[in-house]
Computed example of a mutant assay.
Amino acid sequence: MKYVIYILAIFFSISGIAQNNVLFEKGNKLYNQGKYLEAIEVYKQILDSDNHSAELYFNLGNAYYKLNGVAPSIYYYEKALQLDPNDKDILNNLAFAKNMTIDAIDTVPEAWTTKLINNIANYMTFDGWAKTAIVFVICFVLLFIFYDFAYTSVKKRVAFIGSMASLVFIIGSLVLAFHKFNLEKSDRPAIVFAQESKVKAEPNLRSEEAFMLHEGTKVQVLDTINNWKKIKLSDGKTGWIPSADIKTL
């Protein structure tokens, strides 16, 4: 009975993949025919089956871009970028889509030390840094054992230096792993979908207006209270925006 369940699960999985491939090709055909709304509907059928890929999000972004959909095109390009951060086509099209936005927001420059550490931490995932630390732990143990059994002073010196270097790399890998974890935890991006949204100083309608945002602007979500979200812009400004006006990535 257990094997029958496994076989059925594999069968339905393969069937689902085949169906999604058919839908993806259908969506591409509609897109090439200039039927962008129809293509979007087909692409979203694939999303409804919990099938996600950079290619699917990229094509959705392209379709919305053709329809001058500022917010959704940027949203889906950003989703594609999350799955494939180094894809040049996604980066280029995202830049074109951002040119359609109204808000011109400066970016607070990072200190070179912070930028360097963040770049190193982003080189791998949290799991990647954790696995790297484990590898260096194994190296440390092996070198320590080698040091204990080495008979010549030269071999002992080499083993000692190697074990100390491994210890340094263990500590460095763990520090970068937790730094990467904190970066991912604090990174809660969202896209403004409202054509125009008044950002308030406090989470209520009676509060004074802090500033105005328009569709397509990317923000960071800091907190949530009832139907309000506290956001932060790249220039450091903060405020409260109605939850319905943004869509989190």
Rank of each mutant, 00 (worst) to 15 (best):
V108N: 09
N32C: 04
K247T: 14
L8V: 03
L213A: 03
A130N: 08
L233T: 13
A95V: 05
M212R: 05
N118Q: 12
N86R: 14
Y65F: 10
V70L: 06
N122Q: 13
F96D: 10
I171E: 11
I241N: 02
V22K: 05
L81D: 03
S197V: 00
G34K: 11
P85D: 15
K131R: 08
A177G: 06
N28L: 04
E110L: 13
G236W: 10
K200S: 05
T224M: 05
W228V: 03
A190R: 05
Q82L: 12
G34A: 13
D106E: 14
T125Q: 11
K180F: 06
K200N: 01
D50P: 07
A130Q: 13
S15Q: 06
S13D: 01
T101H: 00
K247L: 06
Q82C: 04
T107H: 05
Y43K: 00
E110G: 01
W228Y: 06
V108C: 12
R188A: 11
L47A: 10
D84N: 12
Q19D: 02
I246L: 11
L67F: 02
Y75H: 15
T114H: 15
H179C: 04
G34P: 03
Q195L: 09
I120S: 07
T224P: 00
N99W: 01
Q45C: 01
F126T: 10
Y6W: 08
I90V: 10
A121D: 12
V22I: 09
D148G: 15
I231D: 09
S173L: 07
L167G: 10
A201G: 03
I170A: 04
K200A: 09
I117P: 04
G128V: 07
A130K: 04
K79W: 01
S13V: 10
A104I: 02
N182Q: 12
G61H: 06
V221S: 08
H52A: 08
N204E: 08
V141W: 02
S166E: 07
P189C: 15
D223K: 14
G239Y: 03
P189F: 15
A190K: 02
N92I: 14
A194F: 04
G27C: 08
K156T: 08
N21Q: 11
Y3A: 13
K198D: 03
Y57C: 05
Y57V: 09
E215L: 02
A80T: 11
N51H: 03
L176H: 06
K29D: 15
S173C: 13
Q220K: 08
